[in-house]
Design a protein around this nucleic acid. Structure first.
Length: 328
DNA sequence: TGTTGCGGGTGGT
DNA sequence: ACCACCCGCAACA
């Protein structure tokens, strides 16, 4: 469809990638260049309409990695692996950490895990989470294509991500393990006692957020600085569970993303988030009084989605975001 | 429990 | 035909 438009973009991309091999090829070409003179270093955050040729020895390329949350898409072509972007999970309250960073979590790749993830709460404020779907490719998610050919691995990206960068896979894994560690605390646990000891010694109150760092490894958390405040833009949608007492949003627009939100979860009585327009998320709702946040892991100590612990959560951690970190 | 890749199948254009 | 996407399965970590 609209191939014309696509071609136009292609031309841009060609002129844009001036270095190295002429990117006169397309991932769908029957024959791809084998007289490559320069292979590219792995690109962790490929964006826009770009093409890269990696060495077939490149581990990251072999695994079709990307720091964007990409999921496999069936294109019925076993020779070309296609992946589409899942976007980024943000805080429905648009909260910020103490140092002014936003929450940009990595969407779980597996559908089931992602739905479960959306029922969890913001690690920073316990508010509801929201999935900002990617619409960077003519309204559809950005797609990445991988094709192994000879001693090279050809990569082609279509679309420009219209959302902030999520955590990298490593950061997301680190955060998961940190959360898991938190649940390990039980009121009677020796670790908790140790924490109390520390508190008595330092006079400081260690919050659940800080604990992991004291008791275990620190987490990486850098914030994506690109896209800050970007979220307010187009109304994205998907839902979330009901977390900390915040009234889930109501959906103003329609456009409920891609089935992330079951119709049944929409609330008829939508209250327009009086967020002076700029407010980030206008739109969808996610009522779910389903006691969602049943997520034990988060709940255990973080006050989970329940009656929230007084808001100010010292941060320092919860959201190991990053992205801005690794520079290409 | 989650990631990754595969492929059958559906519906829209 | 092509594309987006749903679903289940299997291998793997």
């Amino acid at each position: 469809m609209l191939k014309g438009a696509d071609d136009v973009v292609m031309e841009h991309e060609d002129s844009a990638s001036r270095h190295g091999e002429m990117t006169s090829w397309d991932i769908n070409d029957i024959k791809l260049p084998q007289d490559v003179r320069q292979i590219d270093g792995f690109q962790e955050w490929p964006d826009s309409y770009v093409k890269h040729i990696y060495s077939s020895e490149d581990k990251n390329a072999q695994r079709h990695h990307s720091s964007w949350a990409m999921r496999n898409t069936n294109n019925h072509n076993s020779r070309i692996l296609k992946k589409s972007c899942l976007g980024v999970v943000v805080c429905g309250n648009d909260c910020s950490t103490l140092d002014g960073r936003k929450i940009y979590l990595r969407p779980a790749i597996c559908d089931k895990a992602r739905q479960k993830q959306q029922r969890k709460c913001c690690p920073n404020c316990n508010g509801p989470l929201r999935l900002l779907s990617c619409r960077g490719h003519r309204g559809y998610p950005v797609t990445n294509f991988w094709r192994h050919e000879g001693q090279f691995i050809f990569f082609q990206s279509k679309g420009a991500h219209d959302h902030p960068r999520p955590e990298t896979k490593l950061e997301a894994e680190a955060r998961r393990s940190t959360q898991k560690a938190q649940t390990a605390f039980s009121p009677s646990s020796p670790r908790l006692k140790r924490i109390q000891e520390i508190e008595s010694l330092t006079g400081a109150v260690l919050t659940q957020e800080a604990l992991p760092f004291l008791l275990s490894k620190p987490d990486a958390h850098l914030l994506p600085d690109n896209f800050r405040g970007h979220i307010s833009k187009s109304s994205r949608e998907p839902v979330l569970g009901s977390c900390s007492g915040w009234p889930p949003y109501s959906r103003t627009g329609e456009d409920m993303g891609s089935g992330e939100v079951p119709a049944w979860s929409r609330s008829p009585h939508a209250l327009p988030m009086a967020k002076d327009g700029h407010g980030p998320f206008r739109s969808s709702t996610g009522p779910f009084g389903d006691g969602s946040c049943e997520d034990k892991s988060l709940l255990a100590y973080s006050g989970g989605c329940h009656p929230l612990p007084p808001y100010p959560v010292p941060q320092g951690s919860p959201c190991p975001m990053a992205s801005g970190t690794q520079h290409h």
